[in-house]
């Protein structure tokens, strides 16, 4: 191979590599609340934020979490079913609701009681400290766990429908219920629908 051919090949390779690097989309940070947020057919963080925000606003305006005795409600998170075609962690929804309810000063969430045991295992581990010889027992505080008086449960549903042959309508329903544990009655219920229209070629799972 002549030196000229080698030079041409090297130049061509550099040009191709340069073009490829130049065409690669740049990663950028999306600002919160920006207008150019990408919209996906699947569930995204902004959908969970919308559903959680609607639920908390509805709960607070309904008066369901008001108490006249000056005490705060203690909520336990029951089951939030994912009945969508996507693999999602329902904590994305529940955590936002918990945080906003805590900020409102109306509701505390127990992490010591749950359908699958304590969310924070340390509550139980702490109870065993009083039996340990390694721990100064005078520093161990006697536990008195607060029992919840309300439970949050719900379901996320997805429905896909073909529209006009080449479009599809994907509907998500965030259904939530707050139950008074003293009598088993639902004291608050609401549903947030989120509807997306897009190409039928796109997938929503």
């Amino acid at each position: 191979m002549s030196p000229r051919n080698t030079l041409i090949k090297a130049l061509a390779l550099t040009t191709v590599l340069g073009l490829a690097a130049g065409c690669t989309p740049q990663t950028r940070l999306l600002p919160q609340g920006g207008v150019d947020q990408p919209v996906t057919m699947g569930l995204s963080g902004s959908d969970f934020a919308q559903a959680a925000s609607d639920a908390v606003q509805s709960m607070l305006t309904s008066g369901a979490v008001d108490r006249t005795d000056g005490k705060k409600n203690i909520m336990v998170v029951s089951t939030v079913l994912n009945d969508t075609m996507q693999r999602i962690d329902t904590d994305q929804l529940v955590k936002k609701i918990r945080v906003d309810l805590l900020r409102s000063g109306k509701v505390l969430t127990t992490t010591a009681i749950g359908l699958n045991g304590a969310e924070d295992k340390m509550t139980q581990a702490y109870a065993e400290l009083s039996q340990s010889r390694k721990v100064d027992r005078s520093t161990v505080v006697r536990q008195r766990l607060a029992a919840p008086n309300m439970s949050l449960s719900g379901k996320i549903i997805q429905r896909n429908n073909r529209v006009d042959g080449n479009k599809q309508l994907v509907e998500y329903y965030f259904q939530l219920t707050l139950t008074d544990l003293s009598n088993g009655l639902a004291i608050w219920e609401d549903e947030t629908p989120i509807r997306k229209l897009g190409s039928a070629k796109g997938t929503s799972w």
Partner: peptide, 10 residues
């Protein structure tokens, strides 16, 4: 300013 979902852009 207080944080919270009630302060989201919608």
């Amino acid at each position: 300013e207080l944080k919270g979902m009630a302060g989201r852009w919608e």
